[in-house]
């Protein structure tokens, strides 16, 4: 399918313990297609096209421990995190054909799968707790199914990708740490080596810039 594939799998295999961070590479080489992102996307493509188990193993070895790690960091217990990480990769296998490589976000796609599974798990636990109450009504149906990813329109996808490319590394980092990882401002100040008083204004500036960039037509 692609002449570059043998090289691709070798390069991923040869350094299994080095975390590949497509995001950071994306920042450094804004005018090239981000290589690492293409690699994960290619692997998902191979799973979709041929049920390629070698490709799946690479995806599993890279993402499952990270899903588990991220979930545990945000307070999920080890057992549940393990289960969700396994099911996330199982869903990657089953839904590989639904992944849109042009979105450029294999990690984002896998994140949304893990997120939805975590929401499902929390809801099941809540229903279980209710069912244990004496006056509980049996309501086992999932009412609102969350879509895999919010953006299904390609226009949206390309605008978001373009906006994120134009956000500086520093700005995307500060937004990520504050809004996604919910780190306290003091910790952000320490990581970025800026005064505590600057953190808030920098977050605000980054958010405004992101909003502006998202509003621009591509």
């Amino acid at each position: 399918m692609n002449a570059g594939l043998p090289v691709l799998s070798r390069s991923v295999r040869s350094k299994p313990s080095v975390p590949v961070r497509p995001w950071i590479r994306l920042q450094r080489t804004p005018f090239e297609r981000p290589k690492a992102t293409v690699e994960w996307a290619e692997l998902i493509g191979r799973v979709a096209a041929h049920g390629d188990r070698d490709a799946f193993r690479l995806l599993f070895e890279h993402f499952a421990p990270r899903v588990k790690g991220l979930l545990m960091k945000i307070g999920t217990d080890r057992e549940t995190a393990e289960e969700i990480a396994q099911n996330t990769l199982l869903a990657v296998w089953r839904k590989a054909a639904q992944f849109d490589p042009s979105s450029g976000g294999a990690a984002a796609w896998i994140f949304t799968i893990a997120r939805n599974l975590r929401i499902d798990a929390a809801r099941r636990a809540m229903r279980q707790a209710r069912a244990d109450q004496p006056d509980a009504v049996d309501d086992a149906d999932d009412i609102v199914e969350s879509p895999e990813m919010l953006m299904t329109r390609s226009e949206d996808v390309s605008r978001v990708a373009a906006a994120l490319l134009r956000l500086s590394d520093e700005q995307s980092k500060v937004v990520r740490m504050s809004f996604i990882e919910e780190r306290p401002h003091a910790e952000i100040a320490e990581v970025l080596g800026i005064p505590l008083g600057t953190v808030k204004s920098r977050i605000r500036l980054a958010m405004n810039r992101l909003r502006d960039l998202l509003d621009e037509p591509t």
Partner: peptide
């Protein structure tokens, strides 16, 4: 789009 950007940053956090 803003929520989509947050999902992408969450992907970066996963990485």
């Amino acid at each position: 789009r803003f929520a989509g950007a947050m999902e992408h940053l969450a992907g970066a956090a996963l990485e």
